[in-house]
Nucleic acid binder design. Structure first.
Lengths: 354, 354
DNA sequence: CTGGCCATTTAAAACGTTATAAATTCAGCA
DNA sequence: TGCTGAATTTATAACGTTTTAAATGGCCAG
């Protein structure tokens, strides 16, 4: 039983140096304090004397201590992680980049880390959310592409799990969101096309099922009805369609009778593809037809005919979402403070007619 | 009529139901086994009898048990997380999407999770890597944009921390990588321009400092030297430049004497911006000049003049990186198995891409 | 029976942290 | 002196898992 070859205390004396990562115990041994005291000191607990706190901090810095997050997590149940659910569709043209750099900005200086949880294969998004909450992989969640009756929102609301969505829902239980006013955007954008004398605008809207697609459509319809003009909602494609498909569809539509004379595009690649499709038919932007698009990046500055755009600031959106989520986690329950509707930025040069 | 059979009162019988998440202890109490046995059974340890394993699994499924990852992590020191370091520049045009969906595919069915760790503000990338390793936030790391003497590679090699890079280095210690043969790509692409009769190709290369930029340049130079023709490496811009900047630079260059007659572009947005810049000068692709570009998405299918491209399959790259990293984590030390150089796909005929 | 060996199960100790409650010191004061 | 209370510090017990070493019981050879 007694194995003398077993190194009971390897080459060390008194203060255990322990080759591994320093822990609270290491600091405790060095300072002669108890582990509890060290823990408290490092979290700046007021009950620990100022000088003790200072000394502990110094030693911690010196030996390069950093707390074991797994242990903290196990004990406290908190992860200090904010998760962003990433849908493959979202990354097109830096959507993700902008949003995330905004979130990162909001989280800077807090205890929270930003972590992106991509969902490429794990079946539905609800399952991903379920998995994340069940496994305690984050303290709060951010996601977009909300549906009117979004099951993720339902689930998280039921669980009381903090989250913010990019986009609204039509659920009765209110929840935190940051959204762009796509109705107003679409309404004003369409009005601009009409103001240019176009009599049959076409809408290329978001994928059916998402709240924002409905808003786009609503704004569009309101504008065309007010003007009493013809309109069209281009079928078969949406903002998620590959550029080539949009191009083909536009070209094909022009081969049919009574084509639209202008386009309201919810995105930049969409605008680009539309221009190309129309070019294929020998039509020139600004002459035979007009386009107005939502702009979220600098892509369109790379193309030839200047496309008229309305800007959506996704970085600001991300920053707002981060802030709102922190408030929510912090216990803020006043829903009005957790719901933000960002207004489209209408350049004054295109201001109201007259 | 009224059926009072409610589905099991939460706090009823002798077996402690404990409102919270089920743990090993819950299963142990239900089955009458020891916690240790349950743990073993769930990990399919051969020492536990088949029938016990089966019963434990059944109970676990029934009550919806899932292990607490924080506890596992604390005990084992393993996180079951593969981290991808994301640089803001990388997300342009779905680079990230493609790579990550590939990695996700490779990780599917394993115990590993894919988590993206964006680095927008935390100063340098080395610090991010340092932070991740020190805090045990992942078991393995994937990142790209390697430099010849990449400090991250150095650090991780020193630590013995498993990682794979997208791109090579010139460090003496070999490490796992998956790379695209940018030399060959650039060489053959440039040769094609020359084969079309162009006598002064210009290169728009990657940002200085990255290994792949050197490879692109090397391939380009080899081709122009072989042909003995003039050449130019466009200064002031690179593949990371905003589209507008590239467009402006190209236009400006044409206002000066002795402009290039063709472009070798490392990316799609770059190609797009170049075309626009040339259009600004009244020049037409395929007539006054030619372009060849590296293609990684479907963007270019949305634009008018068909641009000749060579394809890099980033999803395959991601999948390879995932596989290689798993091997590395699994203890594979034969470096030759951990280094992959993917060859450019040269289409036999230069038709329209699928 | 006894002892030994197998197959199976188990108790106890960790991992590094925080929460709870208790202990210690010391000053002030009756 | 002895009590109270404030200011510090501390021991102990968790959190949920895995690891280590040991226990249990059945079976068979001696």
């Amino acid at each position: 039983m007694a194995d003398p070859s077993k190194p009971a205390h390897p080459e060390d004396s008194g203060v255990t140096a322990k080759r591994g990562k320093p822990t609270l115990r290491t600091i405790a041994e060095i300072t002669g304090l108890a582990v509890t005291t060290v823990s408290r000191a490092l979290s700046e607990a007021p009950q620990i004397s100022i000088e003790t706190r200072k000394r502990v901090r110094e030693v911690a810095d010196e030996i390069g201590y950093s707390p074991d997050r797994a242990a903290q997590r196990l004990k406290t149940g908190r992860t200090n992680v904010i998760g962003v659910l990433l849908d493959p569709h979202e990354e097109i043209l830096g959507y993700g980049t902008s949003i995330m750099s905004g979130i990162a900005k909001a989280l800077q200086g807090t205890a929270y880390h930003l972590i992106v949880m991509p969902n490429f294969l794990n079946s539905t998004n609800v399952e991903a959310v379920n998995y994340i909450t069940r496994n305690g992989m984050a303290d709060g969640l951010i996601f977009s592409r909300t549906e009117p009756l979004d099951p993720r929102v339902r689930l998280l609301s039921d669980l009381g799990f903090p989250f913010v969505t990019h986009g609204r829902t039509e659920l009765s239980t209110p929840h935190a969101y940051v959204d762009y006013d796509n109705f107003t955007f679409s309404y004003q954008a369409t009005k601009r096309l009409i103001a240019k004398g176009r009599r049959k605008p076409a809408l290329i809207s978001g994928p059916a099922g998402f709240t924002f697609a409905g808003h786009l459509q609503h704004g569009f319809m309101t504008a065309v009805r007010e003007a009493g003009c013809a309109y069209e909602i281009l079928s078969g494609i949406d903002l998620d369609s590959p550029a080539g498909a949009i191009r083909d569809r536009v070209r094909q539509r022009y081969a049919e009778p009574d084509p639209p004379d202008s386009f309201m595009c919810g995105g930049e690649v969409c605008a680009l593809a539309t221009i190309t499709g129309m070019s294929d038919c020998g039509l020139t932007l600004g002459r035979e037809y007009d386009i107005i698009a939502k702009q979220t990046s600098h892509l369109l500055s790379a193309i030839q005919p200047q496309v008229e755009t309305i800007y959506e600031d996704l970085t600001a959106t991300g920053e707002d979402m981060g802030r709102v989520l922190l408030q929510k986690i912090g216990g803020e329950s006043d829903v009005s403070k957790l719901q933000l509707l960002l207004c489209p930025q209408i350049p004054s040069s295109f201001g109201t007619p007259g």
